[in-house]
Amino acid sequence: MSTNLYFVRHAHSTYTPDELGRPLSEKGFQDANRVTKLLSYKHIDHVISSPYLRARQTVEGLADSVGKDIKIIEGFKERKLQDGSAGNFEEAVKKVWSDYSFAWEGGESNLEAQKRGIVATEWVLKQFKGSNVAIGTHGNIMVLIMNYYEKQYDYEFWKQLAMPDIYKLSFDGDKLIGCKKIWNHQR
């Protein structure tokens, strides 16, 4: 029996410098409702989230809908790019993707963030073997986790993600056996 992890990149948020407490925007809440409707039919057994508010808010409706509490796992929080805000965010992200061991001052390299995400993913795979698990997370860490299993998930892939976005990763034990996009943002 496979374990299915539904990685949910959070919906659109209202920008504030408070990374941990940044809430969803009005559009983000509308899209979170669509996430709930879509995943309610996937027989979700467990709901997990990054500790960041926008990720939790994206999967809260789903947790309520399936009668589950949200388990917070630090390993699924967004990668820390650097201390303070990046002058040119996209260029700063491009740089860390071009050199996996490079880190901006006070930030995580791709290797560091990926390792954190994989430790969390492997824990989920062991704890919830054979289950369907929804994970509220963030674009960069989600793609770094996907990249660990298949290198095609890279910077260019990250750039085309929507907010929200959902990818179903299916595992046999700890071996990835399938990855499928299940969110159509145009609906």
Score class of each variant (00 low, 15 high):
residue 1 M to K: 09
residue 1 M to D: 07
residue 2 S to V: 12
residue 5 L to M: 12
residue 6 Y to M: 03
residue 13 S to D: 02
residue 14 T to K: 15
residue 15 Y to L: 13
residue 19 E to L: 06
residue 20 L to C: 00
residue 20 L to P: 03
residue 27 K to R: 15
residue 27 K to P: 03
residue 28 G to H: 04
residue 29 F to N: 12
residue 33 N to A: 15
residue 34 R to H: 11
residue 36 T to M: 14
residue 36 T to D: 00
residue 38 L to C: 01
residue 41 Y to T: 14
residue 41 Y to N: 14
residue 42 K to P: 01
residue 44 I to C: 07
residue 46 H to Q: 13
residue 46 H to K: 15
residue 46 H to Y: 11
residue 47 V to R: 09
residue 49 S to P: 01
residue 50 S to D: 10
residue 50 S to N: 09
residue 50 S to V: 05
residue 51 P to W: 09
residue 54 R to F: 06
residue 55 A to L: 10
residue 56 R to N: 01
residue 57 Q to H: 01
residue 63 A to H: 06
residue 63 A to V: 05
residue 64 D to I: 00
residue 64 D to M: 05
residue 65 S to Q: 14
residue 69 D to Q: 11
residue 72 I to W: 04
residue 74 E to H: 07
residue 75 G to K: 07
residue 76 F to H: 10
residue 78 E to N: 13
residue 79 R to M: 14
residue 84 G to F: 12
residue 88 N to L: 00
residue 88 N to I: 10
residue 89 F to V: 07
residue 90 E to D: 13
residue 93 V to M: 11
residue 96 V to P: 03
residue 99 D to N: 15
residue 109 S to G: 06
residue 115 K to Q: 13
residue 115 K to D: 11
residue 115 K to E: 15
residue 116 R to I: 06
residue 118 I to V: 15
residue 119 V to A: 04
residue 121 T to D: 03
residue 123 W to G: 06
residue 127 Q to S: 15
residue 128 F to K: 10
residue 128 F to I: 01
residue 129 K to S: 12
residue 129 K to A: 14
residue 130 G to F: 03
residue 131 S to M: 13
residue 134 A to S: 12
residue 137 T to M: 14
residue 140 N to Y: 00
residue 142 M to F: 01
residue 143 V to D: 01
residue 147 N to W: 00
residue 148 Y to G: 01
residue 148 Y to M: 01
residue 152 Q to G: 10
residue 153 Y to S: 08
residue 153 Y to E: 02
residue 155 Y to Q: 10
residue 156 E to A: 11
residue 159 K to D: 02
residue 162 A to H: 11
residue 164 P to M: 05
residue 165 D to S: 08
residue 166 I to L: 01
residue 167 Y to R: 05
residue 173 G to C: 02
residue 173 G to E: 09
residue 173 G to P: 02
residue 175 K to R: 15
residue 175 K to G: 00
residue 175 K to I: 09
residue 176 L to F: 04
residue 179 C to G: 12
residue 180 K to R: 07
residue 181 K to C: 04
